[in-house]
């Protein structure tokens, strides 16, 4: 099982699509940096299309910096930097989409 991180804003929608199409059963996706903007409900359809069971996370400090705490899609679990480390340790590899 892999942890995928995405740091690109929605303007780079191809990066989000490529990342989502690469997810396997049991993987986790963590949005970081400008990637947290893809947690807005406007992008829900992209996550609805995922055929496998995955977990969705977004990094707390990056959400807060961009004023997204109350705007994000509720499917995303908020993690802090420690949670990021835990996720990296729990998965056998990390795949960075940037």
């Amino acid at each position: 099982m892999a942890l995928h991180t995405l740091n690109q804003p929605p303007g780079n929608i191809e990066c989000l699509k490529r990342c989502l199409s690469a997810l396997s059963e049991g993987d986790a996706l963590l949005l970081i940096e400008d990637g947290v903007l893809a947690s807005l409900p406007a992008y829900a359809a992209h996550y609805d299309q995922i055929k496998v069971n995955i977990s969705l996370y977004a990094l707390q400090a990056d959400l807060a910096a961009r004023g997204l705490n109350d705007l994000k899609d509720n499917r995303f679990i908020v993690v802090d930097d420690g949670g990021f480390v835990d996720l990296a340790c729990e998965h056998d590899k990390v795949v960075s989409w940037y």
């Binding site: 707390q60 400090a61 990056d62 807060a64 910096a65 961009r66 004023g67 997204l68 705490n69 705007l71």
Partner: peptide, 11 residues
Amino acid sequence: IGNHQAGDIGQ
């Protein structure tokens, strides 16, 4: 978008 709290990312 308002209500930015950028201190934790050092900006």
